[in-house]
Structures are given as structure tokens and as C-alpha cells.
């Protein structure tokens, strides 16, 4: 079972060191860590700040501002359901409700086995596919409950398994 990786401090340090002194490189650095570890461990805020001559509070501010950056470990598959207007009109809300039941998670939650994280977003920019969602970087559109079930099955979640 895929657990969040134990923090590999050496890997983390290497990423930070790569950008040492480059105050402008905060966001690329954070993305780098996010991609490597799946999240940005809280303990890395101070070392990042020190390396980039920033305040730790600034680093935290940036991490908490961007939806793509997270201080909490996330599941292997991050499901993002659109809550934008177009999707809402096309029944996005019931898709979300259905999804919550299917994966047994509320918004912002991650399953204990770190397989899935459920999130919502304002607009995925795929309104023509409404109602839409993303799993990691893949878009899925014109959703219906059966379609959601089959997508989840692709990602290894059998119907009914809580």
C-alpha cells in the first residue's frame, strides 16, 4: 500500500540547495518539493526561508495561497471536482455528493491509505465538458454517476468499497 513517503530529508535538502540564494525561485522550489514528496512538509518551511533569504511567514503564506501546494500529505490520486458555475448548472453538485459517498471522503480529506484525496475547485477551465473533474492531471467531463464509478474503478476503487 502506498503510504506518503517518509520524508527523505536528504532529497529535500538537495532540492532546497539547488535554489539557495534565489529569492525569486520560491514557487518553482515549492512545486519541486510538492511533486517529489506529494506535499510540502511543515518542517521544511524554515529551511526554505533561510535558503532563499525570505521570512518563514512569507513561505507559509505562499504555500497556503496556492491550491496546487499543500502542507498536508495527499493521496496518490487527487480528485478535483469542479464547483464552477457551468458545472453547477449541469449538476456538478450531485456529482460531488455522489463522489463523496463513493470514496467515503469529505472535501479536503485524504483516505487513510493515502490512495485518494478529494478536493473542489472554482473552475477547471473545461466548462464545455461540464460537469467536469480532474484526477491528478487527467480531465474527465460530461460526468454522470455511472461514469464516476467507472473512472474510480480505473484508479483501483471498486464500487461499494468504503
Amino acid at each position: 500500500m502506498a503510504k506518503p513517503k517518509d520524508i527523505d530529508w536528504r532529497e529535500l535538502e538537495a532540492i532546497i540547495d539547488k535554489h539557495r540564494g534565489e529569492t525569486w525561485a520560491l514557487i518553482p522550489l515549492l512545486q519541486d518539493i510538492q511533486e517529489t514528496l506529494g506535499y510540502i512538509p511543515e518542517e521544511s518551511i524554515e529551511p526554505i526561508a533561510e535558503a532563499l533569504n525570505l521570512f518563514a511567514s512569507q513561505v507559509q503564506g505562499v504555500i497556503s495561497f496556492y491550491a496546487g501546494l499543500s502542507l498536508k500529505p495527499k493521496g496518490k490520486y487527487v480528485i478535483r471536482i469542479c464547483r464552477g458555475t457551468a458545472c453547477h448548472v449541469k449538476g456538478g453538485r450531485s456529482i460531488l455528493r455522489f463522489m463523496k459517498k463513493e470514496v467515503g471522503l469529505d472535501e479536503g480529506e485524504t483516505s487513510p491509505d493515502y490512495q485518494f484525496t478529494l478536493e473542489t475547485v472554482a473552475c477547471l477551465g473545461a466548462c464545455f465538458l461540464a460537469p467536469a473533474m480532474m484526477v491528478n492531471r487527467t480531465y474527465f467531463g460530461k460526468l454522470s454517476p455511472p461514469k464516476v464509478t467507472s473512472i474510480l474503478a480505473e484508479y483501483g476503487k471498486k464500487k461499494g468499497e468504503g
Binding site: L54, F55, A56, S57, Q58, Q60, G61, S64, F65
Partner: peptide
């Protein structure tokens, strides 16, 4: 220039 606080979240 202490940096004790900054915005968090949005």
C-alpha cells in the same frame, strides 16, 4: 524586518 507574520490562506 522581523517577518513574524504574513498572510495565510485566501
Amino acid at each position: 524586518v522581523v517577518g513574524a507574520i504574513d498572510y495565510t490562506l485566501r
